[in-house]
Amino acid sequence: MLLLPERVVVLCGNAGSVVRLCDGSREVDEIVAELGERFPGAPVADEVPAFLTALRKEGWLQ
């Protein structure tokens, strides 16, 4: 769940796992690598960068 001014965003699926890793100390490649280890066979290399781009466009992530 993301708490934003005047709204709440409920994250579905493994979105929370991605957002938790966005702590300012990791690059996107590092997030993808870590999630790839946690979820072998999942298409994280394709989906995670696109997801993070969408979050940036919404202004939810800098």
Rank of each mutant, 00 (worst) to 15 (best):
R20E: 13
G36A: 07
G13V: 04
L11D: 05
V18E: 02
R38T: 05
F51Q: 01
R7W: 02
D46M: 15
S17E: 15
L11S: 04
L2G: 02
L55A: 05
E6F: 14
V32I: 11
R56H: 05
G24E: 07
G16V: 12
E58P: 06
V9F: 09
E37G: 11
K57P: 00
V18W: 03
L2A: 05
V28M: 02
G41Y: 04
E58G: 13
L4V: 15
E27G: 12
P49M: 04
A42T: 06
E37L: 14
G59T: 03
V44A: 03
F39C: 06
V18N: 00
E6G: 09
V8Y: 06
A33S: 13
S17K: 05
D29Y: 06
P5E: 11
V8C: 10
L35C: 02
L55S: 02
L4C: 13
E58L: 15
V48A: 05
G41L: 11
S25A: 12
T53S: 14
A50H: 03
D46T: 15
E6Y: 13
A42G: 03
W60I: 07
V18L: 05
A42Y: 07
R26G: 09
L3M: 10
G24A: 13
G59N: 01
V32Q: 03
R38H: 07
D29V: 11
P49E: 00
I31T: 02
G13P: 05
N14L: 15
L3P: 02
L2N: 04
L52C: 07
G24P: 06
D29C: 08
C22F: 08
E47A: 14
R38K: 15
I31A: 04
L21C: 10
D46H: 14
F51M: 01
T53Y: 12
L3E: 08
E37C: 09
R38Y: 03
F51A: 06
E27L: 14
V19D: 02
D23E: 09
K57T: 10
I31N: 00
L35M: 12
E30A: 12
A45H: 07
E37Q: 15
G59M: 06
W60Q: 03
A15C: 09
E37R: 15
C12G: 13
S25Y: 05
L35I: 04
E30S: 08
L21Y: 02
A33H: 03
T53M: 13
E30C: 04
A54N: 08
L3W: 10
P40V: 11
I31M: 01
L52G: 00
R26T: 06
